[in-house]
Design a protein around this nucleic acid. Structure first.
Lengths: 262, 262
DNA sequence: CACAGCTACTCGTATAGACGAGTGGGGGAG
DNA sequence: CTCCCCCACTCGTCTATACGAGTAGCTGTG
């Protein structure tokens, strides 16, 4: 016998013109915000909420779906509705492409994850030649064919990021970059060995709700947006030598940048 | 008499184990992606979809609510469900805090918006003294009281950003910074006049779904995340002189950064 | 012609009920 | 005692219905 939700949740206000399911959502949200339900805690079941508020089940489900859309809770079939724990975030430092980080044997992702005590994995690696989209082609200065490297990154078994790198084919073909494992320091190290000394990166950051394919690939919970990052790498001659298109689970990342006050 | 949706939408697959409302959502999403419904176009009404698929209205509404959660469509009471137009985005360039931009009379937001042909407004301006949250205090090096400047930014009447600046009180009290209008070049110009020459900014970027208050302030549609940006400004002595906490409508912004390849 | 009101259409909210499917615990069979 | 099955509980899907409320166009009245 679980204790009645009445101890934690108030009563509806029949005089309010706020819809009943919104009032219920408000109650639950407030209870979560105030710590009456902590991370990982189980909310009252739909049946209990129906009983407590004296409304129909669809009304209760409607309320819960609001909280799901806000990313506050997630439902587990057959078990219950739980307050979503905030997963540990991975901080992308602004110096993550500093040359000194490339001197080591492992990839930046691996080194950084292990330093943070997480278990890194790379997954779904795919290397192929393609005709680029108009956008990618334009960013690469009009390349007509590109080498694409796709891969998925996981932390402790959880997918957190899916990235596609595009390189002009004339630059990458028949080089270690076209190998699944490009070697220590990653493709940036190889690019520099090939004579393309990197000068700067440009990053564009957007946020949006994920497409269904992204929900699947990143195993995203309801109410989790994605950060869409497009990075272009330029060499010292001003040529765009790589475009990396990355989709990240927004609840797993915080991006950090340093801006000089010129 | 509107034309039947049958011309644009397929039929359900009864052998599929995908839920009916998901199949309907898939159909509509595909039709939108393929341009059979363009931006601003009206989807078939709930009644028409009920008729077309032979399902109950709740099932159709369930399907539509998926698309709303993805930010693809929005419903207008009494009118219909429309494909969400992508609003013009404001690009925040990485040099937006360059000193040369402060030399002019107007604020960065105003100058930039007018250059882009939009009508900028600043709104809900509030200046007050407060005890900072633990997080803000830590970022400001342990300040116990701060001056807070809050304001909302609008483009062409649409709220796009809500920002709060926090400055150590000992630094900002009885200066033009404590005035509602701090004068040409904004508070960064005033800080430099006060002897705090700015050296660098640190920005942290997160994305998440908005809290209800943010939905209201930014008049956010369903399925639009927010970008949460926290910027700390440091002077040449390494002191944190301002923290700016900004919440932006994610569909209105793209952030651009330049990273040197050191 | 102008305008008020009716009406048909739209989505919003809410009810009551049914069945399906995943989970976990308790009790009975071996 | 161990294992398996069943049952109770959970959320997931779907139907059918009802009324409320916003919108827009048509129509009849003044």
């Amino acid at each position: 016998m679980t204790s009645s939700p009445s101890a934690l949740l108030g009563a509806l206000d029949p005089t309010s013109d706020r819809a009943v399911f919104r009032q219920i959502a408000d109650h639950l949200r407030e209870a979560i915000d105030k710590g009456r339900f902590t991370e990982g805690a189980k909310l009252p079941s739909e049946a209990e909420l129906v009983e407590h508020y004296g409304v129909s089940r669809m009304t209760v489900r409607n309320a819960i779906s609001i909280l799901q859309g806000e990313g506050l809770v997630h439902a587990e079939h057959g078990k219950g509705v739980y307050v979503r724990p905030r997963p540990p975030v991975r901080r992308l430092a602004s110096d993550r492409f500093a040359r000194r980080h490339r001197e080591q044997g492992k990839s930046a992702f691996t080194v950084e994850a292990e330093a943070a005590g997480s278990r890194p994995e790379v997954d779904q690696l795919e290397v192929r030649e393609e005709r680029p989209s108009q956008d990618i082609a334009a960013r690469l200065g009009g390349a007509r064919k590109v080498l694409v490297r796709r891969r998925r990154y996981l932390l402790d078994g959880r997918p957190v990021e899916f990235a596609s790198s595009y390189l002009p084919l004339d630059l990458a073909r028949n080089t270690p970059i076209a190998q699944p494992n490009p070697g220590p320091g990653g493709i940036y190290a190889r690019l520099e060995e090939l004579g393309h000394r990197l000068e700067r990166f440009e990053e564009e950051v957007r946020a949006r709700m994920p497409a269904p394919a992204e929900v699947k690939t990143l195993r995203l919970a309801a109410g989790v947006p994605v950060i869409h990052l497009i990075r272009t790498a330029y060499d010292t001659e001003g040529r765009a030598v790589e475009v990396c298109d990355t989709v990240m689970a927004a609840d797993a990342y915080v991006l950090a940048y340093q801006l000089p006050a010129i």
